[in-house]
Design a protein around this nucleic acid. Sequence first.
RNA 1: CGGGGCGUAGCGCAGUUUGGUAGCGCGCACGGUUCGGGUCCGUGAGGUCGGCAGUUCAAAUCUGCCCGCCCCGACCA
Length: 589
Amino acid sequence: MLWAGPEIMRYRRALLPTVKEAPSDATTASHSLLLRAGYVRRVGAGIYSFLPLGLRVLKKIERIVVEEMDRSGAEQVLLPALLPAEYFKESGRWEVFGPELFRLKDRKDADYHLGPTHEEIITDLARREIRSYRDLPKNLYQVQTKFRDEPRPRAGLLRCREFLMKDAYSFDADAAGAEASYRAMRDAYTRIFDRTGLTYRRVAADAGSMGGSKNEEFQVLVQSGEDIIVACEKCEYAANLEVAVSRVTPPPAAAGSVPAAAPVETPNQKSIEEVSAFLKVQPSQLLKSLVYRAGKRVVLAVMRGDHELNEDKLGRALGVKELELADAATVKELTAAPVGFAGPVGFQGEIFVDTAASQVPDAVCGANAADRHLQHVVYGRDYSGKVLDLRSVVDGDACVECGSQLKRYRGIEAGHIFVLGTHYSQKMGATYLDQEQKKQTLVMGCYGIGVSRLVAAAIEQHHDDFGIAWPISIAPYQVHLVQLGDGERVERAVREIEAGLEAKGLELLVDDREERPGVKFKDADLIGIPLRVTVGDRGLDKGQVELKRRTVKESRNVELAGAVEAIWSEVEQLRSEDQRASAHSKGQK
RNA sequence: CGGGGCGUAGCGCAGUUUGGUAGCGCGCACGGUUCGGGUCCGUGAGGUCGGCAGUUCAAAUCUGCCCGCCCCGACCA
């Protein structure tokens, strides 16, 4: 792998500055370990230099991505990072992007910016070069540095202002073609993530600001992840919590008709727990009424008492990005009651009712009066509103697909694929001529992978108290040879193993420093290369060297004569184990 | 942008409350010692105390303004 540096690196020559103490500003494991193990150095907020070891990992991941993109039939290009403003002005994103865009002026005072993503630039290329249905489909991708002036860069490589991204854009004649391109990318991404050796899950997701329709995220599963995802234990269903749904069983209806709604005194009983205990009814029979404010708009959201409202879902229903629970004063003004007694019956204003709430046959809800609730409330009879899914899925919910249990996980979004449709092509007039000589709009898809983010995500998933523990496919080197002592016998054994491993095309880091063994072992654990080989007098006395996996406590001794073969087969085994672990992790193909 | 915190040697920190001209550990250099899980001892180099302005005989310490960084929230690969 020439393009990531030498196959054999001697520690004495290498820039590999490990440090014992973590810099105080590093809070996440990957951030701290990347700094401590000498992979990266901070240059500014959300701006990092990759040191030799860090670059090797980055290149390893990039290589997997490139190979699988090429295999999928996509073609690599390289678009500029420095962009004249005209393209983003044309699409409207010069304004939409706001302060997140790094803007600059040239000497003639013309507007420029650094590319945060490249839909406009690629669409411009497409409208110039794609003219006929014969030119379709096309899928163009690049691996390139992106710039986004994030409101809050954080956690080292996890959220940077300058980061390495693979972005791909597909162009098709029609929706069916775009769908096929999308599926091809999904397959490529599955191969890519499998090959990284990471545990991940492909999940349905919110399209967000990309303006597309169908989309899925590739989430690397880690406890420290920012995103919450929901996945079925049995089948393939998995979704970001923002859009996750589940089957909900309505509480059973009592025999006979429900009596007319009637008020009941509930002095000081505000919370669901209080009211349910006070009136001796299940929380699932209560209706929770939440007053939300989105700008000037104020709405009432009605949930079943035992359910959690999902603000992303409500936000989408309202078509707004930001919303918040109304303050006590607003609630009082709208419901004529303190917080805790709001209800949909007689509420003057917009009402959104969660599907499960609407199905409660005989409900209790706030009466919009202090210390009072209403019993025997029925949706459709006593109140109405827009019924839709507003609920956050929780652990143990039933899968919509198969009814098995759903479970929540945390993840880091490392990839996202979209069917974009004609959003950009329409705006920018990217068209082609079909067989009938008719002008048609190109149908697009876009597909991103955060390459530098994957470096951090991999560490978040693969580390312990001592350091990093790379999956072998993305480790900077496969073998870490610890040389103990500089006697002639040791030197000779090291050379012999080096030569043998080089002949097999393995990559190794040789710790040839004049350090005590303890220092070398600690650094080896910190750096995290998957296989450690120790060559020292103690073993050579018996004609042996020691093999140790980074993730296993025990080591084993092998004969020096067969060491190269033993190392080779160990590496092969690590490779296949990682692949199996990854492919097994998400039960989807 | 709202809220909180921090800037003193390469890294981690003390010193700031109560102004008196800067210290500890790690690392680094040199000498010795040790040598299979961050040896031990000694010597030494290294700092415009984030910047600017002010108060004062005197400012790391007090005041003002500015800059940078980190953490918690709304966004994203």
